[in-house]
């Protein structure tokens, strides 16, 4: 465990909590893509099946359980409790265009052709693109609430910190996972445009709105 990995995990946790609190406090999930949140719930479910097969550490187990629980709670708030506030008309990204190719790729390119490993690979690939419905929704409406941009910032920062963690681990531990690294690079690149807007607009106190 190095500092980049730890801050990456905490950044991920911050993102998840920010989103939950935003929905809970405002009693509304306006501007949030339920589809992205469904995909993240699927990502955590397929990745953390090793909770049943192996124990790494108390930290590892607790974080996995927290991520899974929070992602299901978020989905519940969007599709059940605050369904009336869900902006389904703008959440029109076709998720099958992500899930089907990602599913096929995880069968073709993986470390080991076993059920758990294929599901882990699927979750890694899917996570890298799971934010697309949310970004698509923002590009459609042309704006995002500031709290939503904080959520996206921490979510993007998390994988960027993991990239540094992987460089660190490569040099100091000889650890290298090509699948995670390539997917992590793709994932981080998808946030670049958003990072630019976040720094140039949101951090200067302006609302994130896109030119018409």
């Amino acid at each position: 465990m190095n500092i980049f990995r730890l801050t990456g995990d905490l950044s991920h946790l911050a993102a998840i909590i920010i989103l939950l609190l935003k929905i809970w406090k405002t009693r509304s999930c306006a501007g949030i893509s339920g589809k992205s949140q469904l995909l993240f719930a699927l990502v955590f479910t397929t990745r953390y099946l090793d909770l049943f097969t192996s124990f790494i550490s108390l930290y590892n187990t607790s974080m996995k359980l927290i991520y899974v629980a929070c992602s299901y709670a978020t989905v519940y708030l969007i599709y059940m409790k605050f369904k009336a506030t869900y902006d389904g008309n703008h959440d029109t990204f076709r998720v099958e265009f992500l899930v089907v190719p990602v599913g096929g790729l995880s069968f073709l390119v993986n470390h080991d052709f076993s059920p758990l490993e294929i599901l882990w690979t699927f979750s890694i690939y899917l996570e890298s693109v799971a934010i697309l419905p949310q970004l698509f929704m923002i590009s459609k409406t042309g704006e995002a609430e500031t709290i939503t941009t904080h959520y996206l910032f921490f979510l993007g920062l998390y994988r960027a910190l993991y990239l540094i963690n992987w460089i660190w681990r490569y040099y100091f531990e000889g650890f290298f996972d090509l699948i995670a690294v390539v997917a992590g690079v793709v994932q981080t690149i998808l946030y670049c445009d958003f990072f630019y807007l976040y720094v140039t607009k949101v951090l200067k106190g302006k609302k994130l709105s896109l030119p018409a």
């Binding site: 192996s54 790494i56 991520y67 470390h111 996972d177």
Partner: peptide, 10 residues
């Protein structure tokens, strides 16, 4: 690649 048992990252 690493085995399923070795997945210490989140």
């Amino acid at each position: 690649g690493q085995s399923v048992e070795g997945k210490d990252e989140l």
